[in-house]
Design a protein around this nucleic acid. Structure first.
Length: 808
RNA sequence: GGGCGAGUGGUGGAAUGGCAGACACGAUGGAUUCAAAAUCCAUUGAGCGCAAGCUCAUGAGAGUUCGACUCUCUCCUCGCCCACCA
């Protein structure tokens, strides 16, 4: 009988679903529970090979953990709100909801064809009212705990479409749809105070079992910088400009100040700035640019002097000019800097352009005072020169001393700034969870009462954004006009919806208790499953999603809703699968691999194993169209092995050799899956199969072990053969085989003899040979004799069980 | 500009201080077949040699070491992330 994957796979998928063998029990207590999570997909239409690469090996891991005796939960769901649904709706005239649910239905059946051990009874869809009710509830908790607030925030604004644009809708500073110049417009929006948690988010990174690169990315994103805030007085006025610096040691070299174009010192002193008209013009120019552009423009720095006002350098009383320039950002630090052109490259470039004095105050050669001639800023450490009483001090010490000295006069203050900005969560979009807030003229903003949740997303027909920068929901009077929860007077709903990252910031909590109508999840079930033991997904979520989810958990813990402070104990990223041409897969390149086609041709088991086998899991790589052939052969061999007795081979089974290989394979596969090294686990299984294939006698025990080891990788084939060899119960409920560490060790080894580090002979010896014995063998070797002829052995290195190296 | 990661046969990769190229793909030759597919066997880094064997070889160059794909430094190339963060 021939191995026909398509026949057996569908059948087993049906049987497993009916029997519910992958449903995780909530009742198991203690440490035996294992929460294995993959990043839930966005229902974009089709399951692509990237999804497979994330989900299939993750399922191997889950199945392995289950066979190791753990009570494993592997849930799946859909991250269903988002902009692409709206775009598809506009393009194809389908309602976002219709489009989304149609995609979900399709992807669900594709997911099932993978043969993963998902507990489908826990499926969640974030655009279901039963789910977003709790997303809205989350918002209310954040609001009640002062973690949600309103502020004017610049948004991408297309003046021609009169609409707010998402970052990805801005192409080259122009509107994606009408090609007109996008400007920055300030709009009042809701923000989450993630910055309150900057320090906690940074500190707790240390304890996580995450890829170090991911931790580092989060660290840089949070961007803690410690320094001093220094107040510069304005000459003749009772005004001051605080600046933030991490290099207080360079203060004596400060030759001018720079403020951001939006800095209040400008607007508040229109009459004092003698060239205000000119300054205003510059500010308007810079407003046209998005911050992203302002930053990414590598073009020259520009600026304008604020004439009529001068600042005073507190360390030496010198008068210095003040500039407004595009290279200083309002939202970071104090929105103003002290410019030290000799020791900061940006200031250096600016000073060169506007012919400002460059004063060297850090010199690497002290006490020789020959300072290098600068063709760029000297940003390294050195010794202070020309710096009053600090002259001669190492710059890293002076950094604190100068600050402390000024602190006595309350001119300086120690400060910590974070790059992390508050999280803007308002979206002027239709396809998202409505923000549960109501605005009343009398009572201002009022939260929707919890018992009135969910605020249902109305089924409106026109989901194009409005002309005033409001969400399409503003068009529905029925939705908007409500009574104020406080005074019962007429009021209006918030019409913005929430950023979809909010939906995905807590979904892993809901899986623990997906049908609960009274709470987002019961304390007891959270206790059972959370935090997540293993989280597997793409590295593209290194900052946004993974940081937001951490923030949510920390905030919820503080509110008393959770009793743990990190959501994901272990995290791993899969690599990216490239097209056969080594390029990123894309429809326009025509190098997209359709997993459905591959499954049809080779079966889901083969595709799963190919993905495991192609290389290190976190590395990804190009799809090799021929690679599946080898896997297919391998699975066929397994099939033949179990279905018929080989008669062609003449080799007799060497019992001990086979036994040893079997135990070595168990060890290798066990260790490898545990460390997500799927590729080498498969190679070990191939070696075992090749060996069994060459034997004329198979012990049924080695076949059983092989099938057990193969079960996580090829669940359908293993299940089929398991029952065919006479077993009664599903292989996926069986215990993982154990190895005997004595049997793993080789009795005899290839002992290496090196002369000067080069291999000159190999001899078969006992594994525990001593140095003296080894030496005797070496001297007896015919191959070695000529090498030692007339030479003196200067040194001998002996490595137990491995080699001996003679240095001559 | 900064950070991180990678670079090994014709290809994907294995080996993380101790036999470089496991396992697989592809290729070549053979067996089987009327023929093909499938399957099986053999060979397969380069060079020299009839052979035993020797030499070279893990992006380039240096260093540490008895011994380096592996550790350190410099440089080159590619990929990803961040990017005027004071």
């Amino acid at each position: 009988m021939v191995y026909n994957p398509n026949k057996i796979e569908k059948r087993w998928q049906r049987i497993w679903e009916k029997s519910g063998i992958y449903q995780a029990s909530d009742k198991v207590k203690g440490k035996n529970n294992f929460y294995n999570l993959v990043m839930f997909p966005y229902p974009s239409g089709d399951l692509h090979i990237g999804h497979w690469y994330n989900f299939a090996p993750a399922d191997v891991y889950a199945r392995f953990k289950k066979m190791r005796g753990l009570n494993v939960m592997s849930p799946i769901g859909f991250d269903a709100f988002g902009l692409p649904a709206e775009n598809a709706a506009i393009k194809r005239h389908i309602h976002p909801k219709t489009w989304t649910y149609k995609n979900i239905a399709r992807m669900r059946s594709q997911l099932k064809s993978m043969g993963n051990s998902y507990d489908w009874s826990r499926e969640i869809i974030t655009c279901d009212p039963e789910y977003y009710k709790w997303t809205q509830w989350m918002f209310l908790q954040f609001y009640k705990n002062s973690l949600a607030h309103r502020a004017k925030v610049p948004a991408n604004w297309c003046p021609s479409c009169k609409t707010v644009l998402a970052n990805e809708q801005v192409v080259d500073g122009k509107c994606e749809r009408c090609d007109s110049q996008v400007i920055q417009k300030e709009i009042e929006q809701w923000l989450f105070k993630i910055s309150d948690y900057a320090e906690a988010l940074l500190e707790d990174l240390d304890n996580l079992d995450w890829p170090s690169a991911t931790k580092l990315m989060q660290k840089n994103w949070i961007g803690k910088s410690e320094g001093w805030e220094i107040k510069f007085k304005i000459k003749n006025y009772k005004l001051e400009i605080p600046v933030f610096t991490t290099r207080a040691d360079t203060l004596f070299g400060c030759t001018y100040l720079v403020v951001a174009p939006e800095h209040p010192i400008i607007i508040n002193n229109k009459s004092r700035i003698t060239n205000y008209k000119f300054v205003e013009q510059y500010i308007n120019e810079s407003k046209k640019k998005t911050e992203r552009e302002r930053i990414s423009e590598i073009e020259e720095k520009t600026g304008v002097e604020l004439k009529g006002i001068k600042a005073i350098n507190p360390v030496n009383g010198r008068e210095i000019p003040i500039f407004a320039a595009n290279y200083v950002l309002m939202h970071y630090g104090a929105g103003a800097i002290m410019a030290v052109p000799a020791h900061d490259q940006r200031d250096f470039e600016f000073a060169k352009k506007y012919n400002l004095p460059i004063k060297m105050v850090i010199c690497p050669n002290y006490p020789k005072t020959i300072c290098p001639i600068l063709d760029r800023a000297f940003e390294n450490e050195g010794f202070l020169v020309d710096s009053g009483k600090f002259t001669g001090m190492p710059s890293n010490t002076a950094r604190e001393r100068v600050g402390e000295w000024l602190q006595k006069d309350e001119v300086a203050e120690k400060k910590v700034y974070y790059r992390l900005k508050d999280w803007l969560i308002s979206r002027q979009r239709y396809w998202g969870a409505p923000i549960p807030m109501i605005f009343c003229e009398k009572c201002s903003w009022q939260p929707v009462r919890e018992k009135d949740l969910p605020v249902l997303l109305p089924n409106i027909k026109d989901y194009l954004p409005t002309g005033e920068g409001k969400s399409p929901l503003a068009k529905s009077k029925k939705f908007m006009n409500v009574v104020c929860p406080k005074c019962k007077g007429p009021a209006q709903r918030e019409t913005d919806t929430m950023d979809t990252f909010i939906c995905s910031s807590w979904y892993f909590l809901r899986y623990a208790d997906p049908c609960n109508e009274k709470k987002f999840a019961s304390a007891q079930k959270l206790q059972t499953w959370l935090p997540v033991n293993m989280y597997i997904g793409g590295a593209e979520h290194s900052v946004m999603h993974l940081l937001y989810a951490r923030f949510f958990v920390k905030a919820l813990k503080k509110m008393g809703q959770l009793n743990f402070s990190e959501p994901f104990l272990s995290l791993r990223h899969q690599g990216i699968i490239l097209g056969p041409d080594g390029q990123k897969m894309s429809k326009s390149r025509g190098n997209v691999v359709d997993p459905d086609e591959q499954v049809k041709k080779y079966g889901a088991d083969a595709v799963r194993i190919y993905l495991c086998f192609m290389g290190p899991y976190n590395q990804g790589g190009p799809w090799n169209p021929n690679g599946l052939v080898g896997i297919s052969r391998f699975l066929n061999k397994v099939w033949q092995l179990c279905r018929s007795q080989p008669s062609t081979s003449s080799r007799k089974a060497d019992f001990y050799k086979l036994e040893r290989l079997l135990h070595q394979t168990i060890k290798k596969v066990t260790d490898d899956i545990d460390n997500l090294r799927f590729n080498t686990a498969i190679s070990a299984l191939m070696i075992l199969v090749n060996e069994l294939h060459n034997q004329s006698e198979n012990t049924s025990r080695s076949i059983k072990t092989l099938l057990l080891l193969l079960a996580p990788f090829a669940p359908h084939l293993a299940e089929e053969l398991w029952l065919k060899i006479g077993e009664k119960k599903s292989i996926h409920g069986q215990k993982w085989p154990v190895y005997d560490s004595k049997l793993v060790e080789e009795e005899k080894i290839q002992f290496i003899i090196q002369i000067n580090g080069k291999v000159r002979d190999k001899i078969e010896t006992a594994a525990d040979i001593s140095e003296a014995e080894a030496k005797t063998l070496v001297l007896a070797s015919e191959k070695i004799k000529p090498w030692l002829q007339g030479k003196e052995i200067k040194k001998t290195i002996f490595v137990q069980g491995k080699l001996i190296n003679l240095v001559i």
